[in-house]
Design a protein around this nucleic acid. Structure first.
Lengths: 231, 231
DNA sequence: ACCACTTAGTGTCAAATGTCAACTAAGTTA
DNA sequence: TAACTTAGTTGACATTTGACACTAAGTGGT
């Protein structure tokens, strides 16, 4: 009979991350160059094994990988899904529990100039990167970008790609770049007001050579709010 | 170091199913009574281990469990997510890869009168069943019902709870019962026409004592279509 | 034959929404 | 202080949406 006590029956389980950041050039994803054998030398999504002695749950494992491999504490983490079959890893039947993380350009630049040689940001064109990826990570990345893009339409998720304080103009620009089309300013502001997930920060403003803009921040305990309608 | 070769480091992995059917009384889920030790005698979502020698991938494993435990081939199967932590299973760090399946009342009645003693349909009130569930299956069931209910709002998913041929009135009734509110007939029909995922079946009609209704069926390769807006 | 009844399916119109464009506001630079 | 740039608001108009009434097509009773 099959039981969990037949250890060799258990599939291999990894936790992999699609870490997204938005830079002036577009959307980028963090990739790691594999140093060990299956697909050694190829680029892959950063990932790791579950530490059954250290990780309380799956999200904790994902956050640990995020910190270990990328030195990042992401404001936003969401499970994308599980990908598992007999052939994706030559070592045997394996699962990838995949999360996507959104980080702001602040955190981004911290690592961008760093001395990490095995981790690098790569631009996403369409729903893929230029370089071939290890395992079935191209498929997984496609699923993650699809999830991100589809949620942009009807949620407040893109706010996590901005620094803690931001203007409404910047927020609109993020939506526009993710959606690939321009939005109406007045309609956009009306929606954001109705959604009621950001609040003005008093006293502050910024920028140069023109009228300063009101700064906003995400309201506490409002990390993702869904719109009634498409923006 | 941790590697997949340290077999005892691997978490236990099961594939569990939330199988839904809609009966006149409301939404029901198929539960299995556990015969073996962890939580023996308790009700649980039907599930099984991955057979690394037989299952091609996760969905194949889910379909096998569906056939083995419930004798059902579901028209619709969707991954809900992975639930994993150190404590949910007393045997150790474990994962549940959860799928939800939607079946039509036809398939339902086939099993309802059957001689299965360890599998039973239970009504869902709110997002839970009356009886306490093994492991964290109450949490998992809550996630599955939430997924089902949220998708009703903006997708064609509820067709899978109907038999192959159905009328627009029946389809509207399914939406109304899942949403818990009544819908406008003309608006509903306009939406369904725009979504363009069902087609009339020629010549046929049915019912008694009033005007017969046109029968429809799901268009091929259109199992789930998303609406632009909430219905 | 005809009327009452039931459900199927369509049409209408006011209200809400999205689009487009102009307008005012508040800063910087020359 | 005038020109310029971006922030933020306001209003007119076309389009879409939702509530409701209407017509259509059957059955069954008298």
């Amino acid at each position: 009979m099959n039981s969990p006590e037949d250890l060799y029956q258990r599939p291999i389980v990894s936790v992999d991350l699609a870490i997204f950041a938005l830079v002036p050039a577009g959307l980028e994803v963090l990739l790691a160059c594999r140093g060990t054998d299956p697909f050694a030398g190829d680029w892959a999504l950063p990932g790791g094994w579950i530490h059954v002695d250290k990780d309380r749950d799956l999200e904790a494992a994902a956050r640990r990988v995020l910190a270990d491999k990328a030195g990042i504490t992401a404001p936003y983490l969401e499970q994308v899904g599980v990908f598992g079959d007999a052939l994706r890893d030559p070592r045997g039947w394996s699962l990838s529990v995949t999360y996507m993380a959104l980080i702001s350009p602040d955190a981004f630049t911290l690592r961008h100039g760093g001395n990490v040689t095995d981790v690098a940001w790569r631009p996403i064109s369409g729903d893929a990167v230029m370089e071939p990826l290890a395992f079935d990570h191209a498929t997984i990345l496609r699923a993650a970008t699809a999830r991100l893009r589809s949620k942009v339409e009807y949620s407040t998720l893109p706010v996590h790609l901005l620094p803690e304080a931001f203007t409404l103009g910047e927020l609109q620009a993020v939506y526009e770049r993710l959606l690939g089309r321009s939005l109406d300013k007045s309609a956009f502001r009306k929606r954001m007001a109705e959604a009621d997930f950001i609040e003005p920060i008093e006293g502050e403003m910024r920028r140069a050579s023109n009228r300063p803009a009101q700064l906003y921040r995400l309201k506490q305990a409002r990390s993702t709010v869904f719109f009634d309608r498409t923006i």
